[in-house]
Nucleic acid binder design. Sequence first.
DNA 1: GTTCTAGAAC
DNA 2: GTTCTAGAAC
Length: 782
Amino acid sequence: MGVPIFGTNLLGKEMEGEDCHQSSKEGRDDGGKGILVILVGAPGSGKTTFCDHVMKNAHRPWTRICQDTIANGKAGTKAQCLKSASEALKDGKSAFIDRCNLDREQRADFVKLGGSKVDVQAVVLDLPARLCISRSVKRTGHEGNLQGGKAAAVVNRMLQKKELPKLSEGFSRITFCQNETDVQGAVNMYSALGPLDNLSSGCFGQKNTDAKVQLGIMKFLKKVEVPDSRVSDPNSFADSIPKQEVEKDVSCLGTENSSIPVSNVDKNFTKGKDVMGGSSHGAVTANDIQTLAFPSISTADFQFNHENASDIIIEKVDEFLSKVENVRLVLVDLIPGSHMLSLVRAKAAQKHIDSKRFFTVAGDITRLYTESGFRCNVIANAANWRLRPGGGGVNAAIFSAAGQALEIATKKRAETLSPGSSVVVPLLPNSPLYEREGVTHVIHVLGPNMNPQRPNCLKNDYIKGCKILREAYSSLFESFASIERTQSIQKEGRWICASDSHDNPVDYSCSDQCPEGEQKVKRGDCFESERNKKYKALPLEPVLKDSECGNSNSHTVTSEVCEQKNKKATEGAKKVWQSWAQALYQIAMYPDQHKDNVLEKSDDIVVLHDLYPKAKRHLLVLSRLNGLDQLSDVQKEHVWLLRAMHSVGLRWAERLLSDDASLIFRLGYHSVPSMRQLHLHVISQDFNSPHLKNKKHWNSFTSAFFRDSVDVIDEVEKLGKAPVNDDDKLLSMELRCHRCRSAHPNIPRLKAHISNCQARFPSALLQNGRLVCAPSKEMGDS
DNA sequence: GTTCTAGAAC
DNA sequence: GTTCTAGAAC
């Protein structure tokens, strides 16, 4: 293997040499045929890499035909690929078809290129969905522009429609690769092929891939009458699944033994656009079943133990379904076969949870209807405590799918959410989620957090954690039930809107510009006022009157928000910040308006260059928490934030060190900052900057006025607050070198000195990670 | 936080 | 005369 072999191939190309012996493990059973290899695999499965690796070491001429680049580097058509493949084969080359080719139809035309002179083979990169998704999400510069957030949904959707190739399609050989070892084996095999070699016919490498098909669900879906068009009958749970796809999509269902009679389904599922679109009926009928789709709470970014979480899901689902009739619950996970889905599915079966009312589904929670036909009128969002978009995962997906209106509507209902609670936000009919998916409400829910870099980390306290997770699901389901109650009351004509609202429905698209006090429509009424204009003349029903805190739908959030608002009201007089001192605050609150300055943004943090750096490298890691202006405001509850800020600062320091290993960084806070909004300085210790001009500048970074981040974190953990050194004298002290401690009469002389001083740093700074330098560097040892 | 500038220090 | 600081204004 691996020795170049020359000869004359059947396509008439003159080759040199004479050694045409069997060169592959599988053996050559035909002499010198061209080979057309159709790669089969989802985005991220490694098709391009496979081709590259084979072609790098190949002993026969190969060409890679990629639809994403075939048109002068841009995406082209299947026809172009076919033409190009045909030409390459005629030219005596072998070819890889580098496109997904996940179903038979996509492959068929390429298979037809085979014949007496060309062998058509398939290499199936059947790697775990999780891996493909993870690769697709992470990659940049993908030829097909499939990367980042959208990749996960696309990969998932494609995988659900995957149809493994069969020899009967016309392949002479199919090589299945289900892990990296298989892939490497196939790469080796194809790269070793000389011009006259070929591989044996047949299927190779296929392990038992029979996905457990849930017969009950299959029966159910097969029983469902598939309508000719969605419009004609938008009511059924599975109504959008074309007949030929039903079987394939079933594999994404996690419920075993489900066998929902078609009659049940048709009657009980919420009536799509009829309900939501403001038809003359305008309300859910008594027989309509409300369906809540929810992600597993806390098990992703919050790192909650899956065993505990799945137990709690089952417990709470069981409890809720036994209490409330005419509702369905659907646990959704983006990744087929995810650990949580498997656990919950198994436990649900064990506990005999009603499989007609509880489902586990693999899919994108924001596209359940369009992609899988699941009509869920309410979806839950695993929100963050700030109720802000972003952060990735379900939260980012839902905020993105629902449009900006959700963000605004959410802010109208609650500013923040505490662990274990939830808040209902109705969607306006023009929300894409409403129009497309039939989702009328989003319930934000916050679970317990075990991730030390997220707020309110419970540090593996699972007694507390389980309690909060139970509360979160209880709150979520209660919120869901409250929607049901609300709609039932609407149906009976007792749901009323504030008088003005009918004529002046809130336009969320502009309401962020309206002062709060001028809002004419009561919160919570906006959506209903759109939907139920027929009830506009009826008097206000006290039972549904908004609380003062502005929450109509979920009692669970009311106390929470009131508490927060009261807390704010009772806060003592805070320092008044001059306008010039508000710049960082503005950036923290509205980072998108300062994109040019922002290096990194998350829900909690913004990173930016200090506008007037006092050293070669000087960044600010800015907290986005409103109300936390300076170190003296920090309390124990903010330790997570200090840690997160430190971690981000450290990461940036390391990044900057990779560009210039001579730098040394210190991370810390000014005891009394000039600018509002808690910010961590990440500053190199050269202090080589024209912006460092006076004594105050110098002393603010080199005296006890500067509080090391590591110390601040320790102290806040131990004492519940961060002691600050706010003595003005610190800033007017004599100018001393931060390394050798020598005194200097003025700034120019000091700067002249420090540009050369290489003394070892004072020992206090060398401890506890206060200084950060490149791994190989000794700090000031010369 | 910066800029400006009067006046002290050299 | 030049350099530097420090207080006021923003």
